[in-house]
Design a protein around this nucleic acid. Structure first.
Length: 475
RNA sequence: GGUCCCAUCGUCUAAUGGUUAGGACAUCACCCUUUCACGGUGGUAAUAUGGGUUCGAAUCCCGUUGGGAUCACCA
């Protein structure tokens, strides 16, 4: 049987990192087995529907390269792939389930149900409507009385199923709740829709958060009542913000699109989250999506929650940035150069920046001095190791200015040679020339690149101008 | 509270009865160096806890503690 997995997000307008990881695992399970990855939109809760949310889902999956084989936009043999377009299907199966004895009509109002149960005394909702005969219930339905369809659980003893990650799970049938399957608005709940859809769409592996572990027996009961075989279950632990809290929109935690906006590369994000709950069994940790397709296995999935560590993602993102071709990096950096003066050597800037930034957003903070010379204190000229200070700067900078104004070859190598020659001629250390020059050109304690590299980036005109200003400031 | 799940360095994790408990991030030190990075070398740092089982336990079993999930006409 062909492996088929599905990613079934509800369109709430936010691509959660945990969700994306689930999608990744679903995608990888399918692709590692030459199977199909299906996209299904679970929009049965109209209250939570957010306009444009499906586009975020599409765009995210596309930018990371997780292409789906069937979905709302491209169709497939098992559509429609949007649950709100499948209402008649759920209604049909829900009524059928009633006939099969797996569910019953319930006429209680929501408040009646709430009143009945008592969390503190651990009293579960006992539906009085279970006692209504099917004939009577049908009559009331036909008369137009509002109703829901509730699951009927009469089984006793222990339910048992196997989870690919957590092993054998045993839960007493008494613990199971006779939940609503079809709401009074005619929409199904997740509890019902996912079973019907997963069966109809021939999903072989259901991958989802481990919060579903304890409700899975209810779903299995529905499969049983219909005489269907249930899929294999792959419950995965949550991705955490810290030891106590899941990553969530409510906490204001970063979504995929937030991370991209902060200068993280989609490839790095995917690589990092793949390792949050899965490992290849060796010490390697840099993987492309294609690599992952080849080596992913369900057996190496972890059972315990993993904390999302932005520091490690940042490191990994730095690895990906350094691995970029200089051209590609330059292309990605371009948007951050929007406000740069036109005479700046952007190619040179990119080449000094590439090994120094960990996220694209670092570009702005590292290159800010190029746009505009910052205010700085003369103290900056002091450096013990370089044996230099403002006095030495004052003494040497005029000579630097002189030699550079005569400089024709404005390459880094040529500039460096000239500066070295100058130091030798003056009988001072290289650092006593280079350090003050760097400060004069940047006004910053740390810069991407040394004095001559900055000079190349700024260009001759701007370099001389900044030297003049520095000399004036020092006098 | 009932039920279910989880527990190795600060973090992600490896070690599926026998290892000096390994790697990565972070951190610290040193080297490289035209500041800062990059790169290189080395260090600090973990089996929650108490009992078993066994020649031998991070690993198997039981208890304890801690954490999480679930008990919606949300998914």
């Amino acid at each position: 049987m062909k492996t088929r997995t599905r990613f079934a997000p509800s369109p709430t307008g936010y691509m959660h990192i945990g969700n994306l990881r689930t999608a990744l695992y679903e995608y990888l399970i399918a692709k590692a087995n030459n199977g199909d990855f299906i996209l299904r939109i679970e929009d049965t809760d109209q209250k939570r529907y957010v306009e444009g949310a499906t586009d975020i889902i599409y765009n995210t999956l596309k930018t990371v390269g997780m292409n789906w084989d069937e979905g709302p936009d491209i169709g497939g043999n098992y559509g429609p792939y949007v649950q709100s377009e499948r209402r008649s299907i759920y209604a049909e199966y829900a009524h059928k389930l009633v006939e099969l004895g797996g569910a019953h009509y319930c006429f209680c109002s929501k408040s009646e149900a709430d009143e009945e149960k008592n969390d503190e005394l651990n009293i579960k909702f006992k539906d009085p409507c279970k006692l209504i005969s099917l004939a009577e219930a049908k009559k009331r339905v036909a008369a137009g009385e509002p109703y829901v369809i509730r699951q009927t659980i009469n089984k006793k003893g222990k339910s048992k199923y196997h989870d690919e990650v957590y092993g054998d799970i045993e839960i007493d049938y008494d613990e199971l709740d006779e939940g609503v399957l079809l709401k009074s608005d005619g929409f199904p709940t997740y509890n019902f829709a996912n079973v019907v859809d997963d069966h109809l769409m021939q999903i072989t592996h259901v991958v989802r958060g481990n919060e579903y572990i304890s409700s899975t027996p209810k779903y299995n009961l529905i499969y049983e009542d219909f005489g269907w075989q249930h899929p294999q279950y792959v419950h995965v632990p949550p991705v955490m913000k810290d030891a106590q809290h899941k990553l969530s929109k409510r906490n204001g935690d970063a979504s995929f699109q937030d991370l991209v906006a902060k200068g993280y590369l989609p490839e790095a994000i995917i690589n990092y989250i793949a390792l949050l709950g899965w490992n290849p069994g060796n010490d390697e940790e840099i993987f492309s999506l294609d690599d992952l397709k080849k080596i992913f296995s369900i057996e190496r999935l972890n059972r315990s929650p993993a904390i999302f560590d932005i520091t490690k993602l940042t490191w990994m993102n730095g690895c990906y940035i350094r691995a970029l071709s200089p051209e590609k990096f330059h292309e990605l950096a371009l948007p951050y150069y929007k406000d740069m003066p036109s005479n700046v050597n952007l190619t040179a800037l990119s080449s000094v920046l590439q090994p120094r930034v960990e996220t694209l957003a670092d570009i702005s903070s590292q290159a800010d001095f190029i746009q505009e010379m910052p205010e700085y204190n003369l103290e900056l000229y002091s450096n013990k190791k370089m044996k230099t200070d403002a006095l030495i700067a004052k003494a040497n900078l005029p000579a630097v200015r002189e030699i550079l104004s005569a400089q024709n070859d404005w390459s880094n190598e040529a500039l460096f040679e000239s500066m070295k020659a100058l130091a030798e001629k003056l009988g001072v250390k290289n650092g006593q020339i280079l350090y003050p020059t760097r400060i004069a050109l940047s006004g910053k304690e740390t810069t991407p690149g040394g004095a001559t590299e900055i000079a190349v980036i700024l260009g001759k005109e701007e370099t001389l101008k900044r030297l003049d200003n520095a000399i004036q400031k020092l006098s």
